[in-house]
Simulated scan of single mutants.
Amino acid sequence: MSDFVDRKYRAVTAFQRRMNPVLRRLPLQTVLETTGRVSGLPRQTPVGGRRVGNSFWLVSEYGERSQYVRNIQANPRVQVRILGRWHTGTAHLLPDDDPRARLKQLPRMNGMAVRALGAQLLTVRVDLDG
């Protein structure tokens, strides 16, 4: 990973560590809950994405370097809070999907932020139960 990308990653994650506790408390903020791969505790991450039928789509800014992606690799069972309601499901990492094209199908503001801040984009699909 280039030095620029590494510095960008550190800056973005430092900012997110401060903002995420605030954002996940907002009632209409979409939140992805994974199980911590080391602690086994629930980990909530504010995300942007879109529900399409029985799937929820999002794009990770830093791919497999993102903590929630690492948690998904260890345990793909997740919950997603969409419009204030929790849904259980199974997350799938889609390295063969074109994340830039996928961002065009997701909310515009989120897509702009992910493109601006991200470096190793990775598409994630959550198949929602029932």
Rank of each mutant, 00 (worst) to 15 (best):
P95K: 06
R100V: 15
W86H: 03
I72P: 11
L94E: 09
G89C: 05
E64F: 10
G63Q: 02
H92Y: 12
R65Q: 12
G63P: 07
N75E: 06
E61C: 10
T88A: 05
G89S: 07
G84Q: 12
R100H: 15
I82M: 00
Y68G: 00
H92L: 11
A74S: 03
R70C: 02
I82G: 00
W86N: 02
N75P: 01
N71W: 04
P76N: 15
W86M: 07
Q79K: 12
D97A: 15
L83N: 12
T90M: 10
Y68C: 02
P76A: 15
N71I: 04
Y62I: 09
Y68A: 00
E64T: 08
A74N: 00
H92G: 04
D98I: 14
Q67A: 03
H92P: 02
V80G: 02
Q67E: 05
Q73R: 12
D96K: 13
R65D: 11
I82L: 03
T88R: 11
G84K: 13
L94C: 12
R65T: 06
L83Q: 13
P95H: 05
Y68E: 00
E61A: 14
W86L: 09
P76R: 15
Y68T: 03
N71G: 06
P99M: 11
L93A: 13
D98N: 13
N71A: 05
R77Q: 10
R81S: 08
S60H: 01
H87Q: 11
R85L: 13
L94G: 07
T90Q: 10
I82R: 00
A91N: 02
A91E: 04
S66G: 12
L93F: 14
L93N: 11
R81H: 09
N75I: 00
E61Q: 14
R85D: 10
V78P: 04
R100F: 13
E61P: 10
G63A: 03
N75G: 04
L83F: 10
G84D: 10
V80N: 02
P99S: 10
V80F: 09
I72V: 14
R70K: 11
T88W: 06
Y68L: 03
I72Y: 07
G89Y: 09
A74F: 01
A74C: 01
R81M: 09
